[in-house]
């Protein structure tokens, strides 16, 4: 683990060693991933914003799958009421910072994965600088302010953003891939303004729902990094109660203020 302000200095790996070939053999077996895809993951750096319900499975799967570097951002502490769904933490970690707790868990899961912990809130400039250093961003946050800020920062830096949200029995998932000029953005879908309080603390959330959405965020991130098709241009609505998964087409809004800044 490195400290928050330290810039990653590790050299980008140019090949996978025998231990990595063994560890990731089940993924390398997949023709869509293969050695080249696995090496790409080892060379990749993902930024996970929020180590709560979504960030827990997302970070666990990204680390397990062989991501080279993960930067984990959360200023909150582990609370007893989080453990119902935030499975990267445990009872011994109550009171500890969530990003630190997550990094401890990941270190035991995959020593090939280098983690960086940021345990304070990021201002815009710091967020921009951080996003410049990574290949992909996962929005696992729990508030609209962060969602809009990440959208703007990723759009500016032209980095892919995997956006997930979950409350009650329902989830929403898509990838905004700003490497492509025609990708829609979060504000093409939702204009900022008066929003209802759609948070887990107010509305409740069933435990495995965040596992479903967070795992799918990791899936989207892996595909985006390797160059496989993602949900870009489609919003997936997940209903854990009926188990209906539905996709809706989302195009760039020609009048979107954020997209016009490009």
């Amino acid at each position: 683990m490195t400290q928050p302000n330290k810039t990653p200095t590790e050299k980008t790996p140019t090949e996978l060693d025998d231990a990595q070939l063994n560890r990731f053999s089940r993924q390398i077996l997949l023709s869509d991933i293969d050695y080249a895809g696995q090496l790409k993951l080892a060379q990749s750096h993902a930024l996970v914003i929020g180590l709560g319900g979504l960030g827990s499975p997302a970070a666990l799967y990204l680390a397990a799958a062989g991501l080279g570097q993960l930067t984990l951002v959360d200023f909150d502490q582990v609370d007893d009421s989080n453990l119902q769904r935030q499975i990267i933490h445990n009872e011994q970690r109550i009171g500890q910072n969530k990003a630190e707790s997550a990094a401890h868990t990941l270190a035991q899961l995959n020593h090939f994965c280098q983690t960086h912990v940021i345990s304070h809130q990021l201002e815009n400039e710091a967020l921009d600088a951080l996003i410049q250093q990574v290949d992909i961003v996962l929005d696992c946050s729990d508030n609209f302010e962060t969602r809009y800020a990440l959208n703007q920062a990723c759009l500016k830096a032209r980095k892919p953003l995997v956006s997930g949200a979950a409350i009650r029995w329902e989830g929403q998932l898509t990838t905004y891939d700003f490497r492509h000029d025609d990708s829609p953005c979060y504000e093409c879908l939702y204009k900022p303004g008066t929003s209802n309080d759609q948070s887990c603390s107010r509305n409740g959330v069933v435990s495995p729902l965040v596992g479903m959405v967070g795992s799918m965020q990791a899936m989207e991130a892996i595909k985006a990094l390797i160059g496989l098709p993602t949900l870009v241009g489609k919003l997936l609505l997940i209903d854990g109660l009926t188990m209906q998964f539905r996709q809706f087409n989302l195009k760039q809004d020609p009048h979107c203020i954020q997209c016009q800044k490009k």
Partner: peptide, 10 residues
């Protein structure tokens, strides 16, 4: 018609 509300939960 599908009306979808933004969610902040994560």
């Amino acid at each position: 018609i599908e009306i979808v509300a933004p969610m902040q939960g994560g």
